[in-house]
């Protein structure tokens, strides 16, 4: 490997880490819902992409600066999150884990197909901020749009952590997550907490969808499935229910994905990511920040 290869390798990993912020946000959504309800919401990434599409619809009606696409996506994400709870969880027997899992698989396909029917599957251009900006750091160039995406992701994560650890809603959410029966006895409405969790994760997902669209410059229904897989991998590697874990895991997966792409090519890239997932499931099932005694 010569110097140019080394520079390219580092650059690829840096790009991957920056893009990994979108994976982190998706991972947070998955993990938060799991933390509160102990359910996996497989429709989460599709709903996030749906929210980004909805923001395009808003932008086509209202002539507004590109940054408002992110606000619109967040708002749409919140609405879709609430609807996902209503359709996929509210009236489904929660005691049966398979029932909610299947209902979210159904919702994933439903949201995907709604997007396909609304757009005929045609990819649409998504507004990117700072796409012309390249910050040169020595031989490396950092993309302005990816740095914006990364910064926005970090802001969202900080806000989410503040919400969870500095507000009454956060306290209620953590209480329901840890002791649902006890929190009921304390007068906390678990249904309300569940709805709010879906709305909040929907908002985060909407921003993640918009960030993905902005980073690629395009939106396509093709994105739902790979982002669902990435979100799940991040959730497992980060540890189910761990927000700091999801943040770090997202960045790691983003960076490693590009590293494997660089060294082993596209045909082997996903293989190594999957091997990483299995390695975590076997050797560290509690995720990055779990104590080693967490296994079994």
């Amino acid at each position: 490997m010569d110097l140019l290869d080394l520079i390219d390798a580092v650059q690829s990993v840096a790009d991957g880490v920056l893009f990994g912020a979108t994976y982190s946000l998706l991972g947070i959504g998955f993990t938060l819902i799991f933390g509160v309800m102990h359910k996996i919401n497989l429709s989460y990434a599709a709903a996030s992409i749906g929210a980004a599409y909805a923001s395009l619809l808003v932008m086509s009606v209202v002539q507004a600066p590109a940054v408002l696409a992110f606000v619109a996506a967040a708002a749409a994400g919140g609405v879709i999150g609430g609807l996902v709870y209503l359709v996929g969880f509210r009236f489904i027997p929660l005691a049966n884990p398979l029932a909610t899992l299947m209902s979210t698989v159904g919702l994933l396909l439903l949201i995907d197909e709604i997007i396909v029917h609304a757009t005929d599957g045609v990819p649409l251009s998504y507004p990117a901020l700072f796409s012309d900006v390249i910050v040169q750091v020595g031989p490396f160039g950092l993309r302005g749009d990816l740095m914006f995406v990364f910064a926005l992701g970090c802001v969202c994560m900080v806000l989410l952590l503040l919400l969870l650890y500095r507000t009454r809603l956060g306290l209620a959410t953590r209480a329901v997550s840890q002791q649902p029966t006890a929190s009921l006895l304390c007068g906390i409405s678990t249904t309300r907490v569940n709805v709010l969790t879906f709305v909040i994760t929907g908002v985060v997902g909407g921003i993640a969808g918009a960030m993905t669209g902005a980073a690629i410059g395009m939106l396509s229904p093709l994105l739902s499935l790979p982002l669902t897989v990435k979100g799940l991998i991040v959730t497992v590697i980060g540890g189910l229910g761990s927000i700091p874990g999801a943040i770090i895991a997202g960045l790691i997966v983003g960076g490693l994905e590009n590293a494997f792409q660089f060294f082993r090519g596209v045909s082997e890239r996903d293989l190594y990511i999957m091997l990483l997932l299995f390695a975590f499931l076997v050797f560290r099932p509690g995720g990055i920040f779990a104590k080693s005694s967490g296994r079994d």
């Binding site: 390219d8 650059q11 690829s12 893009f19 993905t212 590009n258 792409q261 660089f262």
Partner: peptide
């Protein structure tokens, strides 16, 4: 090379640039 539903192309395009 890339896949139909890939989301990042920076590595591939860097090879192209070189």
């Amino acid at each position: 090379e890339w896949l139909l539903n890939d989301t990042t192309f920076s590595t591939q395009v860097r090879d192209m640039k070189r």
